[in-house]
């Protein structure tokens, strides 16, 4: 087992040199591997058997058939390579996920979901993680972009996309064409949100900084209309007015609850960092939902109180990367 992982490591190092990471790949001589499949080996065995049978019975038709099958085998070498080398693929936008969720990587194949007759390559394509067994199969003639590749759960943090093996057996299944691709890009895994039942902040008591009568944008009472800004929630768009004025307008509300919350690691009722981060994650989500202005103290980093989708993302990002600070 140990030597196997060592071999894998060597292999990965070699592959990093041979097929460096890219956003987009056009398969070619430098990236394609080709070898007879199990059936191909069986097929060669069949040809040898046929040759012996033909010679022993002095049967020219059997010999001809044998050579025909051998010719097919030879032709398929270039045919399957040619088919495979027409594949173009690139990685799509990767959305951050929470730990405990399944990570998926959208991969876009050229020409897929266009007219079938325009498709330059045919045949089922097998996608899987390098050196793993479970695969995703799709037939480009019968699929829609992007192909989502599920890799299972990932721990909290920033992960580069693992090497992906792409395989095809087209046209006769005699050869296996494959490549191990490494896509540029990474996936951010936020901590798994853990609900915190009796957190005092949300009930409006301790540890909160009150900031007087200054009204905050909230959702309680309708205040005014402003032009739509990116990140405004959909439910606040004044759709009736959109129909009239043909521009997006957000309704603004005022909230009497004009508190600013500071969330920090120290407040969490646990010593376990991961658990604490999970609570924080949940809190960030809750605060975002209830439109509270919140800031975040994380070790040396602190994010000023704000609200909105971008702010939430920044906070969750910081949680995901803790304690490596904001590296990206």
């Amino acid at each position: 087992m140990n030597s196997f992982t060592l071999w894998n490591k060597r292999m990965l190092m070699w592959l990093d040199k041979r097929i460096p990471s890219e956003r987009k790949f056009q398969l070619g001589m430098d990236s394609i591997f080709i070898f007879p499949s199990k059936f191909g080996v069986l097929f060669i065995g069949l040809c040898i058997g046929l040759f012996i049978l033909g010679s022993n019975y002095s049967n020219n038709l059997l010999l001809l058939l044998c050579f025909f099958l051998v010719s097919l085998f030879l032709i398929n070498l270039t045919a399957s390579y040619s088919n495979f080398s027409k594949i173009q693929l690139q990685i799509g936008r990767i959305h951050p996920i929470f730990a405990g969720e399944e990570s998926t990587f959208p991969i876009w194949f050229s020409h897929v979901s266009e007219d079938e007759s325009q498709l330059p390559y045919k045949g089922k394509i097998y996608l899987k993680r390098f050196q793993q067994k479970t695969h995703t199969t799709f037939d480009p003639a019968h699929a829609t972009n992007p192909i989502n590749l599920a890799f299972g759960e990932l721990p909290r943090g920033k992960h580069s996309i693992p090497r992906i093996t792409v395989e095809s057996y087209y046209p006769l299944g005699l050869y296996r064409c494959w490549t191990h691709l490494k896509f540029k890009g990474e996936v951010i895994v936020y901590p798994k949100p853990l609900p915190l039942s009796h957190f005092p902040i949300l009930s409006g008591h301790a540890n909160s900084e009150t900031s007087g009568a200054k009204s905050q944008q909230g959702q309680e009472d309708f205040e005014t209309l402003t032009s739509y800004r990116q990140g405004d929630p959909m439910h606040r768009i004044a759709w009736k007015l959109v129909a009239k004025r043909q521009a997006l307008v957000s309704k603004q509300f005022s909230t009497p609850l004009s508190e600013t919350l500071w969330l920090s690691l120290n407040q969490m009722p646990t010593r376990n960092i991961e658990e604490a981060l999970s609570y924080l994650c949940w809190l960030v989500n809750e605060c975002h939902k209830s439109e509270v202005r919140y800031g975040l103290h994380l070790g040396n980093t602190s994010i000023e109180p704000q609200n909105g989708a971008a702010h939430r993302e920044a906070c969750l990002h910081a949680l995901a990367l803790y304690p490596n600070e904001r590296s990206s």
């Binding site: 001809l64 050579f67 025909f68 051998v70 010719s71 097919l72 030879l74 032709i75 398929n76 045919a79 079938e116 007759s117 045919k122 045949g123 089922k124 037939d139 003639a141 019968h142 095809s168 057996y169 087209y170 046209p171 006769l172 299944g173």
Partner: peptide, 25 residues
């Protein structure tokens, strides 16, 4: 290997391969 292609296309591919195989045979 390609379950969703049309029959005419499959036959064309096979036909071309067989014709190509003949001279080598």
């Amino acid at each position: 290997t390609a379950p969703h292609a049309r029959l005419s296309h499959q036959l064309k591919v096979i036909g071309i391969q067989c014709l190509q195989a003949l001279p080598i045979t």
